[in-house]
């Protein structure tokens, strides 16, 4: 494990990616400690869309709220949603993919059919429909849950392909003949081959979760209980920032989303080369 980390640290892509990601995590968690401005405080003196000043580093929004503190809160919500969506989608995907791929037979066929069904259904439409159906209780956690429940199909598919190609390998037969039970075979002889895959799938799911949340919030179906990056964009759009070309209303939030997702992609790509022991040596 330490060896793995050492090798990962050799890859510049990984170092840059993890640095950006950790920085964004730190800001999301500890940001309010250092930049303590209440997000609900409306600075009426400075007025709507105040320019940046020593009081408000990036100025204020249409209500006179401080942009930096909004961004910090938004980042925190976005990462939270991404993580929840990622964990749910990966867990469902890995479970279905592994079970179907390793078992084979009719169970596999049924599960595979279900997975394919979820792949062809346009995920975003489902997301919009469900979000608009739950009007009152649309919380951050619920949005994350919905995203997770609608986006697991890709991870199931890739894990299944890997697992079923492993099934015919003789090392599985040899493990059986060593007396290993099904669970031990799964953990010791199948999962290691999939671990890098599962991890990469997880990272992809987190980043796509963040993006999905931003998109759905932007069109006004986001969580009602908190400020996310998508909500900042939505409010900017709804309050004429687009027509008045107030770029400061869009740019920082978009940039934060882009940077976070970019960092996750960098981590994902660099892991590919490191996880495989064949490439490692």
């Amino acid at each position: 494990m330490i060896k793995l980390l050492k090798n990962l640290m050799k890859s510049p892509m990984f170092v840059v990616g993890i640095a950006i990601f950790i920085l964004s995590l730190l800001i999301a968690i500890f940001g309010p400690v250092f930049y303590n401005v209440d997000i609900n405080a409306r600075d009426i003196v400075a007025g709507p869309y105040a320019p940046s000043s020593s009081e408000h580093l990036l100025g204020t929004d249409h209500l006179g709220r401080d942009y930096v503190s909004l961004l910090i809160a938004g980042l925190r919500s976005s990462l939270y949603v991404g993580l929840i969506a990622g964990i749910i989608a990966t867990t469902i995907g890995v479970f279905i993919g592994l079970f179907g791929g390793f078992r084979g037979g009719w169970i596999d066929e049924v599960l595979n059919m279900g997975t394919n069904l979820f792949i062809v259904i346009p995920q975003f439409v489902i997301l919009v429909l469900i979000s608009s159906a739950v009007k009152e209780g649309r919380s951050l956690t619920l949005i994350g849950l919905i995203i997770g429940l609608t986006s697991w199909s890709w991870s199931a598919r890739s894990v299944r392909a890997q697992a079923s190609s492993l099934r015919s390998r003789d090392h599985i037969a040899l493990a059986k003949m060593n007396g290993d039970g099904n669970l031990k075979i799964l953990i010791k002889h199948v999962l290691p081959y999939l671990l890098s895959y599962v991890f990469m799938v997880f990272i992809m799911q987190v980043s796509s979760g963040i993006l999905s949340e931003a998109s759905i919030s932007m069109i006004g179906l986001g969580p009602l209980d908190s400020t996310s990056l998508g909500i900042i964009l939505n409010q900017a759009k709804d309050n004429g920032a687009l027509s008045d070309s107030i770029w400061i209303a869009f740019l920082p939030a978009t940039l934060v989303i882009t940077l976070t997702v970019f960092a996750l992609y960098l981590i994902n790509t660099s892991m590919e080369g490191v996880f495989n022991p064949r490439l490692r040596k």
């Binding site: 390998r169 003789d170 090392h171 037969a173 040899l174 493990a175 003949m177 060593n178 007396g179 290993d180 010791k188 002889h189 290691p192 081959y193 022991p277 064949r278």
Partner: peptide, 27 residues
């Protein structure tokens, strides 16, 4: 017990050969 035909697919690449040979004692 058996000796399989294709040695390339007979070993788990994540463990050393030695541990895999010694695992056989559990049967």
């Amino acid at each position: 017990q058996s000796i399989f035909q294709d040695p390339f697919s007979c070993f788990n690449q994540f463990f050393s050969i030695r541990t895999q040979l010694e695992d056989a004692r559990f049967i």
